[in-house]
Simulated scan of single mutants.
Amino acid sequence: MKRTVICNIPMKRDIANSVYTSEDSTLPVCEVSVKYPVNAVLGKILSEGDQVKVLLLVKKDHNDYYVANTQAFIDELNQINNDINTNLEYVTIETDFDEDKIVHDKLMGSLVDAIDTESHLIVDITFGPKDLPLVVFSALQFAEKFLDCQIDNIIYGQGFFNEKNEVIKTKLCDMSPLYYLNSVTNMITCREPDKARKMLKNLLSF
């Protein structure tokens, strides 16, 4: 199977390992301690012979923590892949840590250039600044419409903390329904506010 994995790389240092659980039968995970939630999923679903391109989205922080974090992802997935023997290709897409239209446009262009056509997409939006998911969602819409891609999962690693701000539990959430909310809105063609609200609620109830 041809897969494209998209993962936001964090800008902070010392990313903690966690064993992620999943309450979603469509989001299986392997019981391994990882820094990046998507790797727990990949360890469960990858098969020998898969063609996997991993797009690592990097915001260049001033402390250069992204350098070690990027390598940590590669090392982690390579270790998991030792028992699978799938074909991995890593592509790093770097942009400045700046909320500027030029930066966003560059990231969008680089993303759509790097996504393989007719591939299954798995996205991890756990880490990174707030602008990244917005740009990624736009790129996913392009990939679905023009590149014949299929979105399998959009992953978020949720953490639960105690009063000492220590992680006591982690689980994976599939954010695909949130992504498709925008598509639902686009289906509504109505200029009457009350009618449009009713139509939206009816669509969401399906």
Score class of each variant (00 low, 15 high):
residue 53 K to T: 15
residue 64 D to T: 11
residue 135 V to D: 05
residue 153 N to I: 06
residue 63 N to S: 14
residue 18 S to N: 04
residue 92 T to G: 01
residue 59 K to E: 15
residue 157 G to Q: 03
residue 119 S to Q: 09
residue 105 D to Q: 13
residue 126 T to K: 03
residue 171 K to F: 09
residue 200 L to Y: 14
residue 18 S to V: 06
residue 12 K to Q: 10
residue 164 K to T: 09
residue 107 L to S: 05
residue 49 G to C: 10
residue 205 S to G: 02
residue 137 F to G: 02
residue 161 F to L: 10
residue 16 A to R: 06
residue 136 V to N: 08
residue 170 T to N: 01
residue 115 I to S: 11
residue 43 G to K: 00
residue 34 V to D: 03
residue 64 D to P: 00
residue 52 V to S: 15
residue 166 E to S: 07
residue 139 A to I: 10
residue 89 E to R: 11
residue 93 I to E: 00
residue 24 D to I: 10
residue 124 D to M: 05
residue 107 L to D: 02
residue 134 L to S: 13
residue 14 D to L: 06
residue 161 F to T: 02
residue 192 E to D: 15
residue 124 D to Y: 10
residue 116 D to W: 04
residue 141 Q to Y: 13
residue 23 E to L: 05
residue 154 I to K: 06
residue 25 S to Q: 13
residue 104 H to K: 13
residue 42 L to H: 07
residue 108 M to G: 00
residue 120 H to M: 07
residue 13 R to I: 07
residue 88 L to A: 09
residue 3 R to K: 13
residue 104 H to G: 00
residue 62 H to W: 14
residue 32 V to A: 08
residue 196 A to C: 08
residue 176 S to F: 15
residue 101 K to W: 05
residue 125 I to E: 06
residue 10 P to S: 08
residue 141 Q to D: 15
residue 61 D to T: 08
residue 35 K to S: 08
residue 163 E to Q: 04
residue 191 R to G: 06
residue 98 D to A: 07
residue 172 L to Y: 05
residue 94 E to L: 04
